[in-house]
């Protein structure tokens, strides 16, 4: 944790600012929302336990909620994401296993593993956000389109951000 604390703090501020100031203003193809701040939650090392993870998720998502005018919806989805994440991490262990204190990023575990790890979590997050927001299944197809397109866009931006701004692989 301590090894990466600077990177974590800087990436947190950077990602939240980009989310609120930039990504909030763009809806790609009219249905694709980019939730790039999820990169912070996804990249937390395993040492951050359940409670700390959920607390961080709650705080950051509440801030996002304030700006998206959807009080509570993003927060519930983010808390759910951080609750499921440790179980999911156990399911998708890479062949070499997890290193203590490593961040869950492409540079540490590779692109293929990261896609397999992040995509279902982001999909679950988008599902909760859009279905709770719709509050009905009358517009099911519209909601599911939003969910799928947003998942793809969010994952794409998370991957790009890592290649552009995160420290390169140590191998």
């Amino acid at each position: 944790m301590s090894k990466h604390s600077i990177l974590l703090v800087v990436s947190y501020i950077f990602l939240m600012a980009v989310q609120v100031l930039l990504f909030r203003n763009f809806v790609i193809l009219q249905v694709g929302f980019g939730f790039v701040y999820l990169l912070f939650l996804l990249s937390l090392p395993t040492e951050v336990g359940f409670n700390m993870g959920m607390l961080l998720a709650f705080i950051s998502a509440i801030i996002i909620d304030l700006f998206y005018q959807t009080t509570g919806i993003h927060a519930s989805a983010a808390v759910f994401l951080m609750f499921v994440r440790p179980f999911w991490l156990k399911t998708v262990v890479p062949r070499s296993g997890y290193e203590v204190n490593d961040m869950m990023t492409i540079s540490n575990y590779g692109l293929v593993w990261f896609l397999g790890y992040a995509t279902p979590l982001v999909f679950a997050y988008c599902c909760i956000v859009f279905f709770v927001e719709a509050g009905t299944i009358n517009i099911f197809w519209n909601t599911i389109t939003k969910t799928v397109v947003s998942t793809v866009i969010t994952v794409a931006f998370i991957v790009f951000t890592q290649y552009l701004f995160y420290p390169k692989s140590k191998y």
Binding site: A75, V79, F80
Partner: peptide, 10 residues
């Protein structure tokens, strides 16, 4: 607990 807070907010 967190989810209850969120549901209350929603």
């Amino acid at each position: 607990l967190f989810e209850l807070i969120c549901v209350w907010l929603i």
